[in-house]
């Protein structure tokens, strides 16, 4: 009993210390994906100028496995990711839809895509974050993997790289393509 008095505080200290140590290694910007396994949020965005699509809404997500990529011309990491998306488009692996988030004006998005290329199948213009908030986006780029029923299956935070694509996204997409429906 007398020993317990000395051992218990030490044990409590070690336990708390371990949790705090783990906490140090966590990134507070990596929030849980609240929508995983749930149908994508309802949204309906107008298209970008200079593209002939009518815009982008949640009903466009039903029917095939797709990626929804949140980007913006102001976003440096999106510029880093961009060549990889262009490369993906060439392989026809999966349709990539874009949510053009918080452009300063209607021209910024189209100009950026003209300069760097346009990897997107459909694009919606989201100047006041309505769709971005509905998806729980905190920063760009973020990419959602959506299955044939329009259910969100995965969220990737940050640029898509070769490692992310071949290690995580491609296996998941191949698996989802094999699912019925």
């Amino acid at each position: 009993m007398k020993r317990l008095i000395f051992i218990l505080p030490l044990a409590a200290f070690l336990l708390i210390g371990t949790y705090l140590l783990i906490g140090l290694g966590l990134d507070p910007h990596k929030l849980p994906n609240m929508l995983e396994g749930k149908p994508g949020p309802a949204f309906s965005l107008p298209g970008l100028e200079g593209r002939d699509d009518k815009g982008f809404s949640n009903t466009d997500l039903i029917g095939s496995v797709s990626l929804v990529n949140v980007f913006g011309s102001w976003c440096v990491a999106c510029r880093v990711e961009h060549p990889y998306l262009m490369q993906l488009k060439k392989t026809n692996a999966v349709p990539v839809h874009g949510i053009d988030w918080r452009e300063p004006d209607r021209q910024a998005g189209p100009t950026w895509l003209q300069r760097h290329g346009d990897p997107y199948t459909l694009i919606g213009d989201d100047p006041n974050s309505r769709a971005a908030i509905a998806f729980g986006v905190t920063g760009a780029p973020e990419t959602f993997v959506v299955d044939k029923q329009g259910i969100i299956r995965y969220k990737h935070i940050g640029p898509i790289t070769d490692e992310v694509w071949s290690g995580t996204l491609k296996p998941l997409i191949d698996h989802l393509k094999g699912e019925g429906g």
Binding site: P28, M34, L35, T138
Partner: peptide, 9 residues
């Protein structure tokens, strides 16, 4: 609504 998108955090 906001919690349903971003979680308790």
């Amino acid at each position: 609504y906001v919690v349903s998108r971003y979680g308790d955090f």
